[in-house]
Design a protein around this nucleic acid. Structure first.
Lengths: 187, 187
DNA sequence: CGCCGAGTTGAACTGAATCAAGAAACGTGG
DNA sequence: CCACGTTTCTTGATTCAGTTCAACTCGGCG
């Protein structure tokens, strides 16, 4: 069983035939480092799953690059607003390591959602999970200190420091690189 | 056509018969001021819709009350994590004006989702909308100044200042009451 | 060897929090 | 309709976490 299949069924079980159809719609790409999956102002057409490697989701705010998410470890990711609203993406997504990425196209996913109630349910549950995650993250950004956020990240994802440049991590945590550097020297 | 019906169909159209069944599952309550819809540590059983009045969603963080959301103007609201994960709610919800509120019970909603694909789709689309909102709010909290956030709130919802105590608005904006007071005197 | 990007360190600055005290508005009972 | 206490809001002084800007260090590599 592939890790993608595993991860999909973790969200909700699917009958054998539907599962097969669903999995068949996911395309697979092996990508070098620094490849773009979504570029600015293009409409995002895929929900992605990263099997190996790291992808970074970022955007520009007042001329500065903001890292919104770092995807690794068999997780899903996408440019949410662009994908669902079919509008040009403010977010960009690129690999920062050679990566193995799967993706399902918007049209395929929506067709499956219409044909198969259980795929609609799968998507609903996946979105519920994202929304819950989003709530936790909001609370963390608003009320935890930079140090607390860094410590939490270390706990949940110790390998990230070895593999992702400090400037990206700082931006993801919502602080400057200098502040992150100071936090690290105080531990 | 009721405002609830209106708002439901705004998310996605529904066939006449399903719409009727769905609407039939929404209970209606007229509530006085300061009534609790969800109490701490109870599992939240309803998705609510407020037709008239104001509800406030809040929780305690380090002994302080945090206003997470203020619902008015024909909008939906709920304790997301408790409702979907069926766990005790950290959030509390209470009315801060006499209000007319509708609610659909978790069991009813889930049964309908299973029976009717289009209700599942409705829920999926509603969640997508929430997730998008949540993304915008995260960006706003992280990168906009207190003043910008206040000005935006005024634009989107001018009546809120007349109807909601300043301390709640401040907390909702993620600032202290003193800071909000100073912002207002500088305009 | 010297350059270059990544990370560190320092000093000054700033937006907002905190603590503390007043002022204004509000509603309840006499 | 006024007086009083309570809640809501404002103002001031101080403090603090984190930013900004600038200079410096370190490790790798052409």
């Amino acid at each position: 069983m592939s890790t993608l299949e595993n991860r999909i069924l973790q969200i909700t079980p699917l009958p054998e035939d539907v599962k097969k159809t669903f999995l068949g719609k996911w395309e697979k790409w092996a990508m070098p480092k620094d490849q773009f999956l979504v570029k600015e102002n293009e409409t995002a057409n895929y929900i992605y799953y990263i099997e190996k490697g790291i992808a970074r989701i970022f955007y520009y705010k007042n001329g500065k690059e903001i890292t919104e998410w770092i995807a690794m470890d068999n997780s899903f990711f996408l440019s949410i607003i662009s994908f669902f609203e079919r509008t040009p993406s403010r977010l960009q997504i690129h690999t920062i390591e050679p990566s193995v990425v799967y993706g399902i196209h918007y049209d395929n996913l929506m067709n499956l959602c219409n044909e198969e109630h259980c795929i609609e349910r799968w998507l609903r549950k996946a979105l519920t999970g994202s929304l819950i995650l989003s709530q936790y993250r909001m609370d963390s950004i608003q009320f935890e200190s930079a140090q607390q956020r860094y410590e939490k990240l270390l706990e949940n994802n110790p390998s990230i420091i070895q593999r992702v440049p400090l400037s990206y991590i700082a931006s993801f945590l919502g602080i400057t690189q200098e502040t992150l550097s100071r936090i690290r020297s105080n531990l």
